[in-house]
Write a protein that binds this DNA or RNA. Structure first.
Lengths: 295, 295
DNA sequence: TTTTGCTATACCGAAATCGTATGGGTCAGT
DNA sequence: ACTGACCCATACGATTTCGGTATAGCAAAA
């Protein structure tokens, strides 16, 4: 039960001649002849009818032929599949993303992924800030699109772009009349707070922005997603400081204003388990960088 | 690209250990280890992650594993299929039969064939006497059920049973009152003639029966099938001398009587091309003999 | 640190494979 | 009918590959 013999057998059956099959296989005729006979003795029946004009497969030979072709194709495909998986051109890639990035990056990222990694089985899962890290660690997502990057010693991150922070406020607000808002004007106004690391003031871009301008805003609400924050802004609960991309798909009635005297930005990053030797991660990163660059 | 390597690979992947796989394959561990590494270098990527606790297939290894299993199963199935075809347990068997035998043998023959040759693809074709020979010669049927056997130098025949000749006559006929009819009584009565070799009187059982009793019957009609003959008998066109099995499925109004002073019989035979080395023929013959014997 | 349990390497003998030379059979053309 | 052409089968020596034994290397458990 050797694949080489099956390859020889298929060649002989197709050429209907040992000699012609031998030249196709770049070998001499006698050894090919003995291999065919060995195969026949292994199977236990004649696979060819020998005539003076060449070899004709018997009914038993034809029965074997189709299966031998399939087996050969299957192993070749298996080798190729293994190489493709190893190169990250094939496999399953589960991407966790935040809702805030959905409108900004997914419409460009998904087509690019499908184009450059056509055999990869893609899955996109919207994850709230608090679950992204857990889902990465328990392997239920392969990579996560984060803003900002997750900080964890088992997780690695690569920044693929930045989003400028903007003030989201009701269209009816007096501050909305200006095209840009000085940070000082926020003093004392209620803030809809998002869960980017308020616990860690050193790294929180919003906290550091306010601190730098010596402005304090009472926290009116804490919400999980940018979308919820905008809802509350629309309800008049307060203002939110959000990445610029939140404008896309935002309900009408909420307007966005840049700061007159600050252009702080927040990192958009791809995060993955440090021990994930999955080559899909590299390829995903390449696609994501390409898409973000042209944004 | 060798099947042995794939078999080794599957064993190691399943056992998750070279050592255990080696005992399963009844070989020593080092050569198995070498073969796995050769496979990996042939594919071009690592297929296992080596740990102190054994071998764990990588994603690429798993991609190959399923296809390797399929390829192995396919070649095993190919070998088995070739053997089955060679032994006549598999393949296509096209059976030509005469309508006259349909009721008598098919209801028993077909279930027996399906039972003892379950993987054979059976086809039954009703053929008139004049086409059976041609369809055998052009390979469009593999075997033919004939009565009597076809005589042709390229066709071989095996008698599997006999059918007694009986007189088929209208129920209203005066001869029908007797339980058996003396041949002499047929003198001068019109005969519905069937196409068994009237051209070759030496071999025609009907002709020899009449000749032996010095009886002559004018030929009222020549018909192709026993069924047609019985129709004409029912119409009052004459009498027919037919095999006993014609009684089954015969229209009412026609009765059958044995001869008082003759018990001539006609052979039921299976015919096939002499050059047909198809083992299905042998198996078919065995089934047919078995069925006829118990009839 | 020692032990245990695994895989990887080295080397040798055995088996399988391949190539060259040659025999034997069938078919076509003279 | 004979001969030449063609194709498959066999024989044998050279090479490659494979499997077994002995042993090294390495990581986790005791």
């Amino acid at each position: 039960m050797d694949l080489r013999r099956l390859r020889y057998f298929v060649a002989v059956a197709e050429e209907r001649s040992v000699g012609r099959a031998a030249v196709r296989l770049r070998m001499a005729q006698p050894p090919l002849s003995v291999q065919i006979r060995k195969l026949e003795s292994e199977v236990g029946t004649a696979l060819f009818r020998r005539g003076a004009r060449g070899m004709e497969p018997t009914a038993a030979g034809r029965a074997l032929l189709s299966r031998a072709r399939e087996a050969l194709a299957l192993t070749a495909e298996g080798f190729e599949a293994a190489r493709a998986v190893a190169a990250g051109r094939r496999g399953r890639l589960s991407v966790g993303y935040m809702f805030a990035l959905a409108h900004a990056v997914l419409p460009k990222l998904i087509p690019e992924l499908r184009r450059s990694l056509p055999k990869v089985d893609l899955e996109f899962i919207e994850l709230s800030a608090s679950t992204r890290e857990a889902r990465l660690l328990d392997h239920s997502v392969t990579v996560a699109l984060c803003m900002p990057a997750i900080r964890h010693n088992e997780i690695e991150a690569s920044t693929i772009g930045t989003q400028r922070l903007m003030l989201a406020l009701p269209a009816s607000s007096s501050l909305a009349r200006a095209t840009a808002v000085p940070v000082k004007k926020l003093q004392g106004r209620p803030l809809i707070s998002l869960p980017w690391p308020a616990e860690d003031p050193a790294t929180s871009v919003v906290a550091s922005l306010l601190r730098r301008h010596q402005v304090s805003m009472p926290v009116a609400n804490r919400v999980e997603t940018v979308h919820s924050a905008l809802s509350l802004v629309l309800s008049g609960e307060g203002m939110a400081i959000v990445p610029a991309c939140a404008q896309l798909g935002c309900p009408t009635g909420v307007v966005f204003r840049p700061f007159l005297d600050a252009d702080d930005a927040i990192d958009v990053a791809v995060c993955w388990r440090r021990d994930s030797l999955n080559p899909l991660v590299r390829n995903f990163l390449k696609c994501a960088e390409k898409v973000i660059r042209q944004t």
